[in-house]
Simulated assay, not measured.
Amino acid sequence: MAKSSVVLSFHEILLHESDVELLGGPHWLNDTVISFYFEYLEKVLFKNANEILFVSPEVTQCIKMVQASEISIFLEPLDIDTKKFVFFALNDNNSPDKAGGSHWSLLVFSKTENCFYHFDSSSGSNHDVAWDFASHLMSYWKKGGTINFVDKECLQQNNGYDCGVHVICNTERLATHAQNHQEINSCEMSVKINPNIKRKEILGIIHNLSKSK
């Protein structure tokens, strides 16, 4: 199927009309929309936070599929050794050659706490996916000793399609906390998330960026 026309080219991301339409709801957000927002966080909101890394869903999917000995191929170009907090948007897609999946959750590695924290807006749905991915990465970060894995409570979605918006909101909140406090564990995660407002906010960001080109 032919791609719809390009709405915005933002650093490494091309947003098409079909991607932007997903933000109108009620739709599941795809890899491209989440990658765009991760890029926006890195290049705009947290451009001075050199200790924080937002890994795109595409790179995360590649890491899932390679041998542990090949993980460095994807992480070292991102200056991973200089980062204290690494954010991964995870989905339950196990196919190595196509985007997809049905549920997003957020995995954060905190080097300062030597811990993976998992935030799932449909509690338990992505536990196995997150644990498998964290275990895969532990061999890469094992130089720091034992690494913990913790499923953290967070606000739960009330439908079957807003998981991606929750990942975006949780990422932004946790990154702000990490920047201010240099840890993840104490971040208050019961603050209300309004997915419809966040969708409109992201549409506004896209509109403003496209006008400035």
Rank of each mutant, 00 (worst) to 15 (best):
A89N: 06
A89W: 06
L90F: 01
L90K: 01
N91G: 05
N91P: 00
N93F: 08
N93Y: 07
N94M: 13
A99F: 09
A99N: 12
G101D: 01
S105Q: 04
L106E: 07
F109K: 10
F109D: 09
S110L: 07
S110F: 01
S110W: 03
K111G: 03
K111R: 13
E113G: 04
E113L: 15
N114G: 14
F116Q: 04
F116T: 03
H118M: 13
H118L: 15
D120C: 03
D120T: 11
S121G: 12
S123G: 13
S125H: 04
N126T: 08
N126D: 01
D128P: 11
V129A: 00
W131A: 10
D132C: 11
F133R: 09
F133E: 07
F133W: 04
H136A: 10
M138E: 06
Y140K: 07
K143F: 05
K143N: 06
I147Q: 04
D151G: 07
K152W: 10
L155V: 00
L155R: 12
Q156A: 09
Q156H: 08
N158K: 12
C163G: 01
V167N: 02
V167S: 07
I168S: 03
I168N: 06
N170P: 03
T171Y: 06
T171H: 03
E172F: 03
E172N: 13
L174G: 05
L174W: 10
A175S: 06
A175P: 00
A175N: 10
T176R: 13
T176M: 15
A178R: 00
H181G: 14
Q182K: 15
E183D: 13
S186M: 14
S186C: 13
C187P: 00
E188R: 14
E188W: 02
M189N: 07
V191Y: 09
P195N: 05
N196H: 03
I197R: 03
K200Y: 05
L203V: 04
G204D: 10
I205Q: 06
I206F: 13
H207R: 15
N208S: 15
S210T: 15
K211D: 11
